[in-house]
Amino acid sequence: MKNYFLFILLFYTGIVEAQQFNVGIRLQKTHQMYWENGVSAQYSFANFKPDRLFVGFDFVTSRLGTAFNSNALKQDSYIFSGSWHFFKKRQVHLVGRLNTGYLTTDLEADIFAQLPSSAFLLAPEFGLNYSPKQLPFSLNTGIGFYVNMLEESKTPGTFQPLYYHLTLYYKLFENKK
């Protein structure tokens, strides 16, 4: 219970200190591979590079994409990111972003237990962000490339490098000062 209150306190303190806090849905397609969709959140600090530097977390899964009601492999990606918005005073920002995280694939059958089923993620990404001032929404799109950090045969075959995504954010909090 104590931890719960501590979490709530930190959460709301964070919001108060936020310049922007956005949550949204993310649609992602890996080139010549799966659709993996999920959720996204990003946060900009009020006192440090407001509206320029964003930290974020994304969760995308093929369960909400190609693997939905099909024989495709179920795989989940947990992605932490830092992004920098260029031309922040305009409605359309150029975005440079660095992602890191973890991918895990469910190979299901015991006979495949010894095969590679996960990979660390590291991906530089470039994109655009459209953020109309009069609306509580922003639209973010990007194209990224996963850098392979292991011998290629030691990662799942469904982990492929080039991806593109479209994320629609709702501005849960925005400091307009």
Partner: peptide, 17 residues
């Protein structure tokens, strides 16, 4: 198990599909 050309995931997909 560690095919350098045709990912072993191929056989996982064949097994599933």
């Amino acid at each position: 198990k560690f095919d350098p050309t045709a990912s072993t995931t191929s056989t996982v997909l064949i097994y599933k599909g």
